[in-house]
């Protein structure tokens, strides 16, 4: 029963995918795997095994000539990054690469203002998200001059304003203390209740144990269920 349900609902489906960077050996080979909105999937694997690469392929950041990636049944190559971003939120392993504004407040709302949404509406959303991720007090700080953990939450906040239905988080627990990890767990649980699917790339065994419903491992170019 569960299998049938899962098969129908694959949010991201990867078919016969292979990938290598320019002038480098093959990193992923013959990958066939699906990800579902109903569960939190953890991707584990040693350093340099290709976890980040897989995450980037899943969200259309990278693309490959061999194999295909489907997002809700549509080949991801046919969707613009702008439209992917409205469905899939991607948290980079280095969150500073996705921060563009002088203050946290502007950072969270800027894409929506940029695309022409009315200011008061955006402000309302921003303050709601600031509260949700407990970023109060940092509204006017620079995203570059706050702690790494805070920066990660700012990047997450900026993603959440798009109300994505799926999140890909690359090493979200790096640099978080125990209390913050607990908080992140709570936040993820809340997302799950809101029917947001998730993929968490992580080495953090205890974090994965307490949060993931399913674990897949990347190793030697292959991706397998654990």
């Amino acid at each position: 029963m569960k299998e049938a349900y899962r098969a129908n609902e694959a949010f991201i489906e990867i078919e016969d995918l292979a990938f290598s960077y320019k002038r480098s050996p093959v990193i992923l080979n013959n990958v066939n795997i699906s990800f579902y909105k109903s569960e939190i999937t953890a991707i584990i694997g040693p350093n340099g095994s290709g976890k980040t690469t897989l995450g980037k392929l899943m969200s259309g950041i990278l693309s490959s000539d061999q194999g295909s990636v489907f997002l809700e049944g549509t080949n991801i190559k046919g969707i613009t990054l702008g439209n992917i971003g409205k469905k899939v939120g991607y948290l980079f392993q280095q969150p500073e690469r996705q921060l563009f504004n002088p203050t946290v407040k502007e950072e969270i709302g800027f894409a929506h203002l940029f695309m022409g949404e009315p200011k008061d509406k955006v402000e309302k959303k921003v303050s709601k998200i600031i509260e949700e991720l407990s970023l109060q007090g940092l509204e006017n700080s620079s995203p570059y001059q706050i702690s790494r953990g805070e920066r990660q939450r700012v990047a997450l906040a900026a993603i959440l304003i798009n109300e994505p239905s799926f999140l890909i988080l690359d090493e979200p627990t790096t640099g978080l203390d125990m209390v913050r990890k607990e908080k992140l767990s709570e936040i993820l649980k809340r997302f799950q209740q809101q029917n947001i699917g998730m993929v968490i790339i992580s080495h953090d065994k205890s974090f994965i144990k307490s949060n993931a419903d399913r674990i897949v491992e990347v190793s030697g170019g292959e991706v397998n269920e654990v």
Partner: peptide, 19 residues
């Protein structure tokens, strides 16, 4: 590499460059 990531990230925010 960094510029590429940033350019991708900004589009993933929902900004459709073509429009």
């Amino acid at each position: 590499e960094e510029a590429k990531d940033a350019f991708t990230a900004i589009q993933l925010r929902g900004i459709e460059i073509d429009k």
